[in-house]
């Protein structure tokens, strides 16, 4: 019997049963092996299958946010902002699957760390103890939202592995550069490759996560295969996709959207219903998959993760540091 205490950020599993079929098929071999080998062994037979798919064993009836339900898999994987493959929401699902290969993939850990290294993704996941699953809210700066069951590992584990030096204060993330296979990168105006950054204490917050899968399947190309940052209390553009390098540094890294429009997008990009985008309100959001008459739902401070992250920003003027 596997008894575990649910974390505050855990969303219920109640609504994902119809996607259950997905979880048990089509996984990348390495994830299956890792999931079963590392996590599954501790959970017994019923847990084994679920763990192989990266999901917690059963639904948690105690968690209060029962109204939240994961967005359907085909919406999560066909409504994407991944400008490397075009600016339309429907572009990435097409153009990220035309010749661009995120496998094999190497990620470099560099900068102010005691253990700089380059890892093949599979080796990194193995070294960090396998994958786990987390259902997070996802709020785009364009005022729409989803609920995504991610598979992956806490970023804090990777930070611990890198062993940052005392002077390291920030993480700078860099995505890939491949204009030949990523059509969107042929538009140089964006200043590719995509870069993002986090404060070290943000990166080691329990919520910060690196995704390797969705709904128990290997993360699709259009969602940022094979490694994608997930910071659910921040707007989606902070979640840099297809990471090739994580550099520890002592100065604030710039991020692509801030470079493009510094008056509209900041370094922090924390979800905040009180601070509007200069061109539209952030006080509410459209829920993807809600259908035509879904209307909007109110946006929550830090996207509903105030309890976990508010302390990080104590004393910070969130209107100026947007």
């Amino acid at each position: 019997m596997n008894i575990r205490t649910p974390k505050d950020w855990e969303l219920p599993e109640s609504a994902v049963t119809d996607e259950a079929i997905y979880r048990l098929r089509n996984r990348r071999d390495f994830l299956k092996t890792l999931g079963v080998g590392l996590t599954g062994a501790a959970l017994g037979t019923r847990g084994l299958l679920a763990a192989a798919a990266g999901f917690p064993d059963k639904e948690n009836p105690l968690y209060p946010a029962a109204s939240l339900k994961p967005t359907a898999y085909n919406f999560i994987t066909s409504y994407n902002n991944f400008y490397e493959f075009g600016t339309g929401k429907d572009d990435p699902v097409v153009y990220a699957n035309k010749g661009w290969k995120p496998d094999p993939w190497t990620v470099e850990i560099a900068g102010l760390v005691r253990a700089p290294a380059k890892f093949a993704v599979n080796d990194l996941v193995a070294k960090l103890g396998g994958i786990e699953q987390r259902v997070y809210r996802h709020r785009c700066v364009e005022a729409w939202s989803m609920v995504v069951p991610w598979d992956g590992f806490p970023l804090a584990k990777l930070v611990a592995l890198a062993d940052p030096k005392p002077e390291a204060k920030f993480l700078k993330f860099t995505s890939f550069l491949d204009p030949k296979n990523a059509v969107g990168q042929q538009d140089s105006h964006f200043g590719w490759p995509y870069v993002e950054g986090l404060r070290l204490d943000e990166a080691t917050n329990e919520l910060a996560f690196i995704a390797t899968g969705i709904y128990g399947k290997a993360i699709p190309n259009q969602n940022g295969a094979p490694l994608r940052l997930v910071t659910p209390w921040k707007y989606g553009f902070k979640g840099i996709k297809s990471i090739v390098k994580i550099e520890f540094t002592d100065r604030v890294p710039s991020n692509t959207w801030q470079r493009l429009a510094p008056d509209e997008y900041g370094f922090y990009a924390n979800v905040n219903p009180q601070v509007d985008h200069p061109r539209w309100s952030q006080s509410s959001e459209r829920v993807i998959g809600g259908g035509i008459f879904a209307g909007r739902q109110p946006t929550l401070m830090f996207n509903g993760y105030e309890k976990q992250v508010a302390a990080l920003y104590k004393g910070l003027d969130l209107t100026r540091n947007f």
């Binding site: 409504y79 339309g88 998959g289 035509i292």
Partner: peptide, 13 residues
Amino acid sequence: RNPSVLADPLKYV
């Protein structure tokens, strides 16, 4: 039934 459109059909319209 394009899922990219059905994700937020009204936005498309």
